[in-house]
C-alpha cells in the first residue's frame, strides 16, 4: 500500500511523515497519543442526534498533520455534521473530539473561540459576510479576536497574499454579492488559509458548481495542501473531488488549473484517506485503491470502478 509522502516545498518540517492514517491504525490501534498531541483532529466514538434523528453514529477517526481525508456520502448522511462537530459548532451527545491536541467536547463556547480561530473552514457557499468587502472578509480572521495586537500593514500584506493565492487580487474592494459562486468560494478559501492554519475543513467545496469551476476549486485545495502542507478534511458528494486530491498535485509556478498527474503506485502520491458515510455511520474507510475495489452496494455508487 502506498502511503509515502515526499517532503514538500515550504512545508513546516515536522509534518513530512510517511505514516498515513489508514483504516487499520485509525480504528483498531488508537495511538498512544490519546490526548491527540500528534493528530490534528480525532473523533473518538462520537455520536450525535437531532431529536429522534441520528446524525452521527459512533464515528471514530483521526487525522495526522498534513494528511487529507475525503468524506463521501449522500445528502443527510451526516458528513457536514461531522465537519461542524469537529470545530465544536455542534456538541456531540457522546464520545470525545480532539482538535489540535485539545479535547473540545468539554469546552464552552468562549473557550472554543480560541481554538477554532486556529482552524480554517470553507463553508458550503463560502460563508462570506455580505456587509464586508472581499478584503475585509479575508482580513477578518487576522483582526479577530479583537484583543490581539495587530500590525495593519502586515494584515494588508497577508490579505493580498491570500487573495493572490486564489488569483482574485483585483476583487479586494468588491462585495461578495458582486462575485460569481466560484469566485465566492475562492475568496472563502483565501479567508480559510490566511492565518496559515495547520488544518482546513472544506464543506462541499464544489457543490453546485460547473465542472471547470469545480476543478479550479479542487486545484486550489491541492495547491494549499502542497504549498503549506495543511491537513485537509473535505466533505463532498463528488468522488471526482477525491480523485483530484488523490491523483493530481499542484504544479508550482503554473496557473490555477495546472495540476500534474501522480501515479498512485509511485512514491510521490499524496496521502489520502477516503471515508464513506451512510445515515451517520462510517461504512467505508481506506485508500483510493481499496475504495475502488469495494463491492459494497452503497460505496460503489460513490466510487465507480475503473473500466
Amino acid at each position: 500500500m502506498n502511503e509515502a509522502i515526499q517532503p514538500l516545498p515550504d512545508g513546516h518540517g515536522s509534518v513530512t511523515r510517511s505514516d498515513a492514517v489508514t483504516r487499520s491504525d485509525a480504528v483498531t490501534e488508537p495511538r498512544a497519543s490519546a490526548s491527540g498531541a500528534e493528530v490534528v483532529l480525532k473523533f473518538e466514538d462520537v455520536s450525535l442526534s437531532f431529536g429522534d434523528q441520528v446524525a452521527i453514529d459512533h464515528v471514530s477517526f483521526e487525522m495526522a498533520p498534513g494528511s487529507t481525508r475525503v468524506i463521501l456520502g449522500a445528502a443527510g448522511s451526516g458528513k457536514t455534521t461531522v465537519l461542524k462537530a469537529a470545530i465544536g459548532l455542534i456538541k456531540p451527545d457522546s464520545g470525545r473530539i480532539f482538535l489540535l491536541g485539545q479535547e473540545i467536547t468539554s469546552l464552552d463556547e468562549r473557550q472554543l473561540f480560541q481554538i477554532r480561530s486556529r482552524v480554517g473552514v470553507l463553508f458550503q457557499e463560502g460563508g462570506l459576510f455580505d456587509s464586508f468587502t472581499v478584503g475585509e472578509n479575508v482580513a477578518y480572521p487576522l483582526l479577530n479576536p479583537k484583543s490581539d495586537k495587530v500590525d495593519l500593514t502586515l494584515v494588508d500584506q497577508k490579505v493580498t497574499e491570500a487573495l493572490r493565492f486564489v488569483e482574485l487580487e483585483e476583487t479586494m474592494e468588491k462585495f461578495p454579492a458582486e462575485l460569481s459562486g466560484g469566485m465566492r468560494r475562492r475568496v472563502g478559501i483565501a479567508r480559510a488559509v490566511v492565518k496559515e492554519p495547520p488544518l482546513v475543513l472544506y464543506d462541499s467545496p464544489t457543490a453546485g458548481l460547473d465542472p471547470i469551476t469545480a476543478n479550479t476549486i479542487m486545484a486550489l485545495i491541492a495547491k494549499e495542501r502542497e504549498t503549506a502542507n495543511t491537513a485537509s478534511l473535505i466533505v463532498t458528494h463528488r468522488y471526482q473531488d477525491g480523485q483530484v486530491m488523490s491523483n493530481f498535485r499542484y504544479k508550482s509556478g503554473s496557473g490555477l488549473l495546472n495540476l500534474e498527474h501522480v501515479e498512485q503506485n509511485g512514491s510521490g502520491g499524496p496521502k489520502i484517506t477516503f471515508m464513506v458515510m451512510d445515515e451517520g455511520k462510517v461504512v467505508f474507510e481506506g485508500t483510493q485503491q481499496e475504495l475502488e475495489a469495494s463491492t459494497d452496494e452503497y460505496v460503489v455508487k460513490f466510487a465507480p470502478k475503473r473500466p
Binding site: F113, V121, F123, Q124, E125, L128, F129, D130, P141, P145
Partner: peptide, 14 residues
Amino acid sequence: VTEQIDAMRALGTD
C-alpha cells in the same frame, strides 16, 4: 441560512 453565523463562530467571534 447562508452559514454566515456559523462562519462567524468558526472564526472565533461570538
